[in-house]
Amino acid sequence: MRTLVVASGKGGTGKTTMTAVLVHVAAPSRPLAVADCDVEGSNLPLALSVDVVSRTAFAGRPRAVVDEEVCAGCGVCLDRCRFGALSLSDDGLAVIDPWLCESCGACTWGCPLDAISFEPQQAGEVLVGEGPAGPMVFGLLRPGEDLSGKLVTSVRERVAALADERGVGLVIVDGPPGVGCPTIASITGADGVLAVSEPTLSGEHDLRRLVSLAHQLGVPVKVVLNKADLSETGAQRIRSACSSLGVELVGELDFDTDLPRALGAVARGTRPPSSLDSSSFVHSVRAIWPRVDPERADWALPDDGSG
């Protein structure tokens, strides 16, 4: 099984749209599975038609709770907490701000009355859907939760198991933006990262960070420049960055504001999938696909040891 992750150091470069079009381009020739690992903003299900067939609870880190019957309000826990999550209420009892608590347990070790304990809590869900292109797995994280990396891992495990069961050779993953833990979890062990960039200063800056991370993890990167026609100086910047980073720029695509709408219409079934073929964006993606397809294209790390 080969895994291709579509990622971007920066949000808003068109990563989800690119993933949806790649699925459209790759799907007719062979079975594939799709995963949305952008668990903080899972938008791929809006761009690809999918019927959710199962939902599994995702357990988060346990939540610290104060037993108000036991707490004597001595305040020792306030000193033990390094995240400022504990305070004394008007009644003189310890209260925990769940938004600041890191569930570390330092407060429990200090409490002379054992008034603080942990209880399990749900942090999100892993969902499995069926669409015309094959199974899709995605994660939903409750607002404000951390552990997005662990949820991404659950999504990837689930999609790998489904791909295995059905003998699917290719998994296309819509990755999260950024270079933090969800990105690390999304690209570790993948066969390649297609980085979607844009012709801006920020786009270049964030692309460099993403390439550096992927190479640290031993995963090769190729770049596609989206919205290339918005700025020639910006586009030139991305071209130079790619050559200095030793990564292949597989193509440049023009800004297409109609495409998300067209994808949405296909996803809702109000237009046939073939209607997408008139889009020049889709046409260009079809042209670069052979250089990206992890089952056919050559994916290698730069040999200068920069990774």
Binding site: G11, E40, G41, D146, P177, P260
Partner: peptide, 27 residues
Amino acid sequence: APGAACTAVAAVHGTDFLLLVTEPTPF
């Protein structure tokens, strides 16, 4: 930080006002 996870919460927690920037797309 973009998103609604812990990184966004760490920045916006306890502020006087939250400006939410969006675009007119389904996403």
